[in-house]
Design a protein around this nucleic acid. Structure first.
Lengths: 235, 235
DNA sequence: AGTGGCTAGATAGTGGCAGTATCTTCGAGG
DNA sequence: CCTCGAAGATACTGCCACTATCTAGCCACT
């Protein structure tokens, strides 16, 4: 198909398709002449994936390129999952703030906490893993806010994270054979279900909030507008 | 303290502090003269929170303002949690793509799926909740990629989300009395532990990937070149 | 053969965001 | 009393993700 058709089927403007190509997010069409190229189903799929990663996954163009590069280079089924996992951006930007003395102290505390957690969970991950570093940075940030996790809380979350990861891997592994297809599936499971999970968590939180407000913690008929207040304030 | 001191203690440039003020993210200092204002500990705390929300939470300035406004307006402990919950941005940007016929079909399917899930989980949430809408949008996106959750999978995640939300609420509710303090804690728990949770999930995924590759639980069909490939490719 | 409508590729322009810098005015404190 | 710094307003910058324009060329239909 021609680029205009590709654009129509995917809803992505021609100019954007060209832009993605320039940024190395997708291959060029097969040129049939100096000014004409043929695009196929794989381009449609790729565009969908790009769109999903940027809008749903919130990835930047650069991050998307890294991920897609990892997908394309996946040569064995085994390496595909790991490569994708490491290509995904870590959702923590390091803040290069001063306050040096406090920093040194809480920083190493966070590091030790992470190390202890990984040991407790019997997780296999090198201390150079971006996830380990990211987690350390995040805990450090929270410490600066005096919002640390209490002992054991982090482990409780970690236990749940483990359960989630099991579900994730089962979902990802369902595409056993072709490395690239597997990698693509991994991208979807790893990157794109993060927002779904977060939304589920938010929904569950909302439910919990309503229950606690409506019920046990508060004497409802203490004042009539309690219920209304929630809906009103919530705006 | 003077603005220059506030800047030094927090590591935030004076110009940025002024900018945040203009954007309505923090109150002005108490003016002691036409060209001098006094800042206090609450400004330090607020700046820390702003920094955490933007860097760790990844919120935009506008989103941060919404959240902080909700925090400041929390008048009752009950409304605080709900208000914060609704003020947080939903991690899905709606993509206004064409492909109308397919859209209509998958769109309503997603809607029904979400409704069924909420019913199954016995969750209390109006269909107008941003979380419900966000989840619907996210599932719609995934459907467009042909990456739906299989029946039951979503419920399994939802069950785990419920457990997580329980932990969250326990953490948030620890600050029982002052509405604003409670709201602030809620911000931290709701918005800032999302990246922590995501990182834990990534770590657990990494562990799972290594374990499955290493051999023992290869329910994926075995592929020959295993061990070394992981560490090598993962770069 | 001619012409209208695409196309590729290159380059330049746009709009939003998050700051950052500058400029003016003016009070505080040595 | 005079210099330093602060307040507030406004302008500027850099980055990002597109989007538009421009040139040159080919395809297909008449």
């Amino acid at each position: 198909m021609k680029i205009s058709e590709l654009s129509r089927t995917t809803g992505v403007p021609v100019a954007s398709i060209k832009y993605f190509r320039r940024q190395g997010l997708m291959p060029a069409g097969k040129a049939t002449a100096a000014t004409l190229a043929e695009y196929g189903q794989e381009h449609v799929q790729r565009l969908r994936l790009i769109k999903a990663l940027t809008t749903l996954g919130g990835l930047s163009i650069a991050a998307t390129r890294d991920v897609l590069t990892a997908v394309d280079q996946a040569h064995s089924a085994d390496s595909a999952l790991g490569a994708v996992s490491y290509a995904l951006p870590v959702p923590v930007a390091e803040s290069p703030v001063g306050d040096a003395e406090r920093e040194a102290e809480t920083g190493s505390a966070a590091e030790a906490e992470v190390a202890a957690l990984i040991a407790d969970m019997d997780w296999q991950a090198p201390s150079t893993s971006p996830h380990v570093e990211g987690l350390t940075a995040a805990l450090r940030e929270l410490k600066r806010l005096d919002a640390d996790y209490r002992p054991g809380e982090l482990a409780a979350y970690a236990e749940l994270a483990r359960s989630i990861a099991r579900l994730d891997l089962d979902r990802a592994a369902a595409f056993g054979d072709d490395p690239v297809a597997l990698a693509e599936q991994a991208v979807i499971v790893f990157a794109l279900s993060a927002p779904v999970l977060e939304l589920l968590r938010r929904l569950a939180q909302e439910d919990q909030v309503r229950r606690r407000v409506a019920g046990d913690a508060v004497d409802v008929d203490a004042d009539a507008d309690t219920d209304a207040a929630v809906d009103a304030d919530i705006d």
